[in-house]
Design a protein around this nucleic acid. Structure first.
Length: 571
RNA sequence: GCCGACGUAGCUCAGUGGUAGAGCAAUGGUUUUGUAAACCAUUGGUCGGGUGUUCAAAUCACCCCGUCGGCUCCA
């Protein structure tokens, strides 16, 4: 039996249980998903988490009745009669073209369903599934439709696997970057400041700086030029760009002063365009790379905010590449390679690549879209990359390639995004002079490799469960003197380490060594050094790292080890 | 924005209509500590905010704000 089949059959059993418990329910759909299933219901009353065990109990009772799943093919007219009073089912039937559709009968529950299903409820292990959560979900995924109640469940073949899954889930919750941010003292949020507006603490800023410095070095070597643009600009810029029409709802309202309206910038593009336009450009300058750590503000809907991974104020590692159309594939290739290199440096090996194509509302010509999309496909193919297509998921001004990284609970977050744009060059009338002295329109590529510092740090913390590698750790070493008389030596060790740019703290508070070690482990300090009489005598340090006592080490030896470890990331 | 749950000290939480609590943290002292929590004392709260019900509200009702899980969205 395939696990997916079991999941799907359990979705039916769930619906069956709901039908018995709440007979007036209208049924939506209930597919199998990774690790489990869900079913959407239009209930007369709302469900509370306390209801789940009751529903589960009902499901077990139903399973024990021991009946088969029977498939039948029926004519549309019969189906309409069968599902009378079930508007969602009728809607589905009306949309399907076939004359005959299949249904599954299991006990007294009948569902419109293509299957497959298990043969009989006998096959369901009664103790290896669990209803996990209740959520709202729009009928057929559209905001315009009614909101149904979705019940999620997980299921496995054995109880042991279920227990293991639940345990892993619990462990994953401890890796939550919002929890780690507090423990590591990196950032916080404050109601009075505003929702989705992170406050970066000193250690958080160190982490940001390390990341930015690393990026700068990489990009400068590739010919990028850093620019800097204001946080506000006149509203007309966004009207010209086309964003005002499409994204007004998600922008902070204009700031009015002296008959002028200014926007808090939701993106940096128009400013970069203006720098491009500040003089006549030659084909010799292309491709031209403008990069900016650009802080933008977007009025994201309250329900979508999520720790650092979805905020209202954030800093993009933004860049715009202005190039000749013929240079497109080469630039996309270069960008993807750079992205992979950077992700690898930060320890990410697992991510998903998406190609997003033309949406319903779009700017530009079909021909332009075709060309651009083909060139993205071509690059993905040449680099032999596995990717998923997000049909219609492109931006209004062009197709794009995204790289998504999953957080500790498996939720994907778009980090790298590479977007082709033939809209802004048109709207802002960008030109360059080609070889023959003729005016030509450049192509524009928008790209963020990390996405935003906020989101990237969020997924980075979850990826490492807070145990950042040495080069990224805001505090790399703690030096703990055993007693008062060892403080002097601890300070000496400290001065030696800081000479080599290691980030250290001497823990000379009036606490026991054990207490400080515990504290250091909890704060995920990569190296904890304990120094006492023995170490003073031999000019050494006692090294502890990631919960392990690595024994005594000469101070020089430890410093060398630290420097090598910091450098190693470049490998 | 929508559906649902939740909001008590810096943190983790107890307290279901009758005088706001614990542990940790912080502060002061004692102790000078050898690898995951020394000891004593002291601080610390408009119980997210507002309105109402009640003799009496952290507790009940309504509205708002915020957080969490989903949905939708993510230039």
């Amino acid at each position: 039996m395939k696990l997916e089949t079991l999941h799907h059959s359990l979705a039916h059993i769930l619906a069956y249980a709901i039908q018995e418990l709440y007979p007036e329910t209208k049924f939506g759909i209930g597919p199998a998903i990774e690790n489990g299933f869900y079913y959407d219901f239009d209930l007369k009353r709302s469900l509370a988490p306390e209801d789940l065990p009751k529903i589960e109990e009902k499901m077990r009772e139903i399973i024990k009745r021991n009946f088969p799943f029977k498939k039948k093919k029926l004519h549309r007219s019969d189906l309409c009669r069968l599902f009378k009073g079930q508007p969602y089912k009728l809607e589905l039937i009306n949309e399907l073209k076939e004359e005959k559709l299949s249904i599954y009968e299991s006990g007294d529950f009948v569902d419109l369903c293509a299957g497959p299903h298990i043969k009989s409820t006998k096959e369901i292990p009664v103790d290896s599934f669990k209803l996990t959560k209740i959520a709202g979900a729009y009928w057929r995924g559209s905001e315009r439709n009614p909101m149904l109640t979705r019940v999620y469940g997980v299921a496995f073949e054995t109880e042991k696997e279920l227990k293991n899954h639940l345990l892993l889930q619990e462990e994953a919750e401890k890796r939550d970057h919002r929890v780690l941010g507090k423990i590591l003292d990196l950032f916080s949020f404050d109601e009075e400041v505003g929702t989705g507006l992170p406050l970066w603490h000193p250690k958080g800023v160190i982490l940001r700086k390390i990341i930015v410095d690393f990026l700068d070095k990489e990009l400068t070597a590739q010919g990028y030029r850093q620019i800097l643009t204001p946080h506000i600009g006149k509203l007309d810029l966004w009207k010209t760009s086309g964003h005002w029409d499409l994204y007004r709802e998600n922008m902070y309202s204009p700031i009015k002063i002296d008959e002028e309206e200014y926007m808090l910038k939701p993106m940096n593009c128009p400013f970069h365009v203006k720098i491009y336009k500040s003089k006549i450009r030659s084909y010799r300058e292309l491709p031209l790379y403008f990069a900016e750590m650009g802080t933008v503000y977007r009025y994201e809907k309250s329900g979508v905010l999520h720790g650092l991974t979805r905020v209202r104020g954030f800093t993009q590692d933004d860049a715009h590449i202005f190039c000749e159309p013929s240079q497109l594939s080469k630039e996309i290739t270069k960008l993807l390679k750079t992205s992979f290199k950077i992700l690898k440096t930060f320890g990410f090996k697992d991510y998903d690549i998406y190609l997003s194509t033309r949406p319903e509302k779009y700017a530009g010509t079909l021909k332009g879209w075709g060309k651009a999309t083909n060139s993205l496909k071509y690059v993905l193919k040449t680099l032999k990359l596995k990717y998923q297509s997000d049909i219609g998921g492109g931006v209004f001004y062009g197709p794009k390639i995204d790289i998504k990284i999953k957080d500790s609970l498996g939720r994907p977050w778009q980090c790298t995004t590479i977007q082709i744009d033939f809209n802004l060059p048109e709207r802002f009338n960008l030109n360059y002079i080609d070889k023959r002295g003729k005016k030509k329109k450049p192509l524009m590529i928008h790209r963020a490799l990390l996405g935003s510092l906020e989101r990237f740090i969020g997924v980075l913390l979850e990826h490492y469960a807070g145990l950042l590698p040495l080069w990224l750790a805001p505090v790399q070493v703690w030096i703990i003197p055993v007693g008062k008389r060892h403080i002097k030596y601890a300070n000496y060790v400290n001065s030696q380490l800081t000479t080599y740019n290691l980030r250290t703290e001497v823990k000379d508070e009036n606490e026991t060594v054990s207490k400080k070690v515990r504290e250091g482990e909890m704060q995920k300090i990569p190296y904890i050094l304990v120094v006492g009489d023995k170490e003073i005598k031999t000019k050494s340090v006692r090294v502890r790292s990631k919960n392990k006592d690595l024994g005594e080490m000469k101070l020089d030896e430890f410093i060398k080890r630290g420097i090598i470890e910091v450098e190693k990331r470049k490998a």
